[in-house]
Amino acid sequence: MVEAARPLDASDGLTDDTLLSVRQLKIAINTDEGRIVPVNGVDFSLKQGHTLGLVGESGSGKSLSTKALVHLLPNTASILDGSQLLFRTKAGSAVDLAQYAPRGKQIRHIRGGEIAMIFQEPMASFSPVYTIGNQIIEAIRLHRGLDKKEARNLAIDMLSKVGLSNPTLRIDQYPHELSGGMRQRAMIAIALSTNPSLLIADEPTTALDVTTQAQILNLIRSLQDELGMSVLFITHDMGVIAQVADDVAVMYMGEVVEYGPTRQVVRQPQHPYTRGLLAAIPSIDHVGGRLTPIGGDLPTTRPDGCPFHTRCAEAIPGRCAREAPQTVPVDPTWWARCHLLEQRETAS
């Protein structure tokens, strides 16, 4: 019963329209104080051409989970056995990225070539001592086998595609000569210059001001339409998710606690934590009203039972603190991990 509640059956491969399916991803990190498991069984999947929003507080493991896809974890971290990272390559075959050697040639081909990434701080994403062009051309030549001149032309094309004015000038400029928004555009140009099938955007707008944020979000969306890639969008901002994502996965303490189509989740959040996140967004309808923060702090160590029970106002005494909840389906594309839902289900 519980097994069938999973959005994807663990035994089969990828369905045709699915680009990426992450199943029971667990990541361990060795620290001075011992081993911790900041990502403890993450499940989500992403359809081709769709955008999945991964949302959660800092420390929820959302960034680690996506870095694990291309083996960009810190040296002290490792993906635990049993994790599956199923991905459909451009060639059409389904592969398990978790099986790739972290420094091997295969994963290097995936990085940049099939899965590209952009990061939170556009300034720090560039090396200050090379020109923008140098760093774009590097990526193009690596994955597209073009000669220097062709690569340069393509780089200029990409820069104009992401909306940089005067790309023939920009290409020879250094990162510090560009503004934050321009740098993020250039970063997107690098990421998309190799025509990847998946773009991982790790809080790409957090460090930008609000108007630039909106421009960058629009740019990503229009490029997605044009190039037909999928986007995995990481943010702590539920408002951004509502704008960009088709589906959403809400993460808390290394687990996905709710997964489903963004519209439905935003309208009828099933998990108390999702409700908390939504209540914390300011909205035009409630100007002047108080925002409701989620009570308490993120615990320093994972509590037994449901990880959220220490901050949950609706926790069932005696149960939530002891028993870890399983995924409960709301409909075939929507599930949450909460005892309250189970109770409701059995009650109905």
């Binding site: 009570g295 308490g296 509590p303 926790a315 603190a321």
Partner: peptide, 12 residues
């Protein structure tokens, strides 16, 4: 810190 919230006294 985990118990500062006080919503579940039996735990405390």
């Amino acid at each position: 810190m985990a118990t500062l919230n006080g919503t579940n006294p039996p735990e405390e």
